[in-house]
Design a protein around this nucleic acid. Structure first.
Lengths: 214, 214, 214, 214
DNA sequence: TATGAATGAGGGTTCATTCAT
DNA sequence: AATGAATGAACCCTCATTCAT
């Protein structure tokens, strides 16, 4: 019941929110106009300001939805007893799942946040760093459990992991590709993770180096 | 000497260019004002337009410097006889070298181009895709030579390679980290490449899987 | 009553329109500033753009008011059964009437359109040529009915007719002369038409030539 | 010799002058840029300012050439003993002749002066009024000699005369028509003058009115 | 004379935000 | 809650004019 009420109450707010997602995806934060958003939401110009204090505020709300979901996941993972394999896979899946249900949201994360220094207020930068730290902590654990190689800083491995993930998503975003079915999603997730874990070297090469290393 | 002459001739243009780099790095393309640039360059407002047709034009000049250098490198690599190892390493070094000499340039590439769909005109998108294709071609060669694993699409490996690289740089950009000395540069390059090639899995794990695979 | 409603609804738009008329009359289209117009209309700068897309658009709106009225008249005349005398007189009266009620509008037509090649987009040029053609058609009819002399091209007579009319108006515009009462208006209209029809030659001369022609 | 020197000295000045004519004809005074003019003249940007104090000054020089020629003619006519017929014809011919040798000059007179109140400084307005007065004086003389009808103000006849003339030229200007040969020039001059003098009424109509007048 | 780089005061336009209704 | 008219501070760009060489 509570939820219903909130839905009734938040019906317009939510419409604005979704409209903002679309508009920002389409034009980017700077070029998306408040009028685009209100038009897309099917409401009047000034009403946006009843629900969101400013454009910046609306943007923050969008980011918060992203970060909230992500940090919720990170909390769940941290509390769980999975090994590093499964933990990292869950992160990958979070990105891919969200991309399926809410491509605009991922798009905005990729294009406006993950690389842009300009949109990064200190608060936002903090969230971003916090996320990296959480991943790094997992990787460090993996190193301690001797699952991940220890000859590189955990931070470096983190970059490589997140970088692969982001670029994959980014590429899909760029061509507006949608993930067709769970099969493809699984394949993509596997690719990212497999290469991260075992590298791009061929088996043949591996043997060579195994020999040469022996 | 040659350089001096060009500096005399191109003194102002070059000053504007550098000022634009700084301004765009600081505020991003959209928020960077032409007045910021002229002020930074120590010249009058209107003079910018003597050297560059428009803000867009100035931006393009910056991008062209980046792409020109990168495509020059790609051409050199393609003509050379190096194996895929060395080729990919050269790409990594190009990013790191440029980051040393011209951190703003790399910054702009990372923040305004490599992920931003909004700033991407068709021309720019084309350059970006061309670059990806060239890397993919190298990776494909590496697969044919059985140096790189063949169980994943070359395009996927490409994403992972470039993703790792970009995120590394991006992270440095984010914290305004500078590369101290060639030693550190080498270590970073090695990290990226090593993990890409051999994966993040520890040796111990590798033995396990080697055993389990046999 | 109708007018009142429209005034309530279109109050600001109409105020901008009138202000634009004044500003353009005073300074000409090029030198008239949007800020002049907004100031004259007693509104804020940006509001002009709420009602008119651009300066050009506002200018077009002004021209359209003129052309709409004129072409409406031309249509009415064409449908009517009047002879060429009355038709041409109605055109003269349209100019003079509009000059009385809306001197700025006529002013702008005279100064910015009827002679200026620079402000003439193809659309505007088209309207102008269309008007000339309609007048020419009347004159041609007059020639067919043997009311007007046939030894000159209808187009030539058209130029002379419109030229007389325009210059008359133009001269009044130049000295900001206003038409005092319907008497003066009638006298002016008569002058233009009489001379066009019967020429400037004196009666005495006419007799001479009549004799010499016989 | 003096003239030669002046020609050597004034070579560039004259080139600028002609270039300005072309540029202003093409784009109008306001839109014609000083750079257009210098480019057209084949000289450097700043040099224009050696010969002309300002854009306004250059414009005035152009107008002066026109007015000088015209007032010279008016002086010659006034001193001569021709009747009003010949005098008016000479004015017509001055316009047509100049249009043949210097179409841009006439164009500028038509489009930028004869109707535009905006470009009219008091000085320029004075010249214009002076010209009208001189024509009016001729017409008045014609009335006194009972060659021209006296039932209308001389000023009105003047407007009609000049209006016919201007619109004719204006129409040629509009379509960039050039006068082919002296035959056509004569025909045009005749048309203008004939209708001014004898009116547009057909002979048949004239007889009717002659009858009705008797 | 001659060059063209350099200046900077506006100009049109945009758009986040406010406010009266 | 809801509307959309109203505001005005910037912003990009133009271009007449000046100036160092």
């Amino acid at each position: 019941m509570k939820k219903d009420v909130s839905c009734v109450k938040k019906g317009k707010e939510s419409a604005i929110f979704e409209a903002a997602l679309k508009a920002i995806k389409k034009k980017g934060y700077h070029k998306a106009r408040m009028s685009d958003i209100s038009k897309e939401a099917g409401i009047s110009y000034g009403l946006v300001y009843h629900y969101f204090k400013s454009k910046e505020d609306l943007f923050d709300a969008i980011l918060n939805r992203w970060w909230d979901g992500l940090f919720q996941l990170m909390a769940d993972i941290s509390n769980g007893e999975d090994n590093v394999h499964k933990k990292l896979m869950q992160i990958i899946y979070y990105f891919l799942d969200t991309y399926q249900t809410n491509p605009e949201l991922v798009n905005i994360f990729i294009t406006e946040i993950s690389r842009s220094t300009t949109n990064l207020t200190n608060t936002r930068l903090g969230l971003f760093k916090k996320f990296i730290s959480l991943v790094e902590a997992m990787i460090t654990d993996g190193q301690k459990e001797e699952i991940l190689r220890m000859d590189f800083k955990a931070r470096y491995l983190t970059y490589i992991f997140l970088g692969s993930l982001e670029t994959f998503i980014s590429a899909m975003v760029l061509v507006d590709q949608n993930i067709k079915g769970d099969k493809q999603k699984e394949r993509i997730a596997q690719s990212i993770f497999e290469v991260f874990l075992n590298g791009a070297k061929s088996q043949k090469e591996n043997k060579h180096s195994a020999v040469s290393n022996s």
